[in-house]
């Protein structure tokens, strides 16, 4: 069989309207970024809260957070996505159900499901990083904060969290990168994000290698840029004289 290498494929017409294949990739990348950012916002808020809960002296609160983490960490992401997309909508109040299933653009309803799914899934992982970060702080810090008369919320707000936040930047960066990669499961419920567009290009044009090479390059570049950016953030917020061994 002859394979027709054609690196210009991305600038050729898809045969649908006046779109070229590159347009597909750009729109796919847009969805990927929109998914990842929204899911990350959910993950940070819920994961941060859960992480704090896991370090609290209250057994009920920390137990609840632990249960959450175990549940979301031990079920495959794809199963969770199917549950959010196929099962949960059936249990919504009738009006919402009709709106979600019929009135809403199917891309948008898929987007809502994936964002929620990915956000809650990632929250479990963020929780563990935040907990580790808080527990890695010297015990004396909490004691010293109590000794000056802070209440427990104040201890967290003014002493523990500002320090833990800086420690967890590197592990959270890698979770952030995971959100981008994991968002590709959206292609399995029909959301046309980057991977789905690459697959569609491969199938339309038969230029499999070019299509997937470009997708790989885009993911790779995204990864590298985020790592560079987070490295810069980490440097900006570093406390002088602290965390010397962690610094490069």
């Amino acid at each position: 069989m002859n394979y027709n290498w054609d690196w210009n494929i991305f600038f050729k017409s898809t045969g649908i309207g006046d779109e070229i294949y590159l347009d597909w990739f750009i729109s796919g990348l847009g969805w990927t970024i929109a998914l990842a950012l929204a899911a990350w916002a959910i993950a940070l808020v819920i994961g941060g809260l859960l992480g704090v809960m896991r370090t609290l002296p209250n057994k009920w609160l920390s137990g609840l957070a632990t249960a959450y983490v175990e549940l979301f960490r031990n079920v495959p992401l794809l199963v969770q996505l199917f549950i959010w997309y196929f099962v949960v909508p059936d249990y919504l109040p009738e009006q919402t159900q009709v709106w979600f299933k019929q009135e809403l653009n199917p891309m948008v309803s898929a987007y809502i499901s994936v964002t929620l799914c990915l956000g809650l899934f990632t929250a479990a992982r963020v929780c563990e990083q935040v907990r580790t970060g808080i527990q890695a702080l010297p015990k004396g810090q909490a004691n010293a904060a109590m000794a000056v008369g802070f209440t427990l919320p104040q201890v967290y707000r003014h002493v523990l969290l500002p320090q833990a936040f800086r420690v967890v930047i590197p592990p959270l960066t890698s979770e952030f990168l995971n959100v981008f990669k994991n968002s590709s499961v959206a292609s399995l419920i029909g959301l046309m994000e980057l991977l789905a567009q690459a697959k569609q290009t491969a199938e339309f044009s038969a230029n499999i290698f070019e299509a997937f090479t470009l997708a790989t390059l885009i993911y790779f570049t995204l990864n590298m840029s985020i790592m560079k950016f987070m490295g810069w953030v980490e440097k900006r917020v570093r406390i002088p004289g602290l965390m010397v061994e962690g610094g490069k």
Partner: peptide, 26 residues
């Protein structure tokens, strides 16, 4: 390591599914 760690597993699965038969063909 850098390349495989920066792409989604799903991409690798689909890519190989489409590409391996072709490669063997060559």
């Amino acid at each position: 390591v850098n390349i495989f760690r920066s792409v989604p597993l799903l991409l690798v699965i689909i890519w190989f599914y489409l590409a391996v038969p072709m490669l063997l063909n060559w």
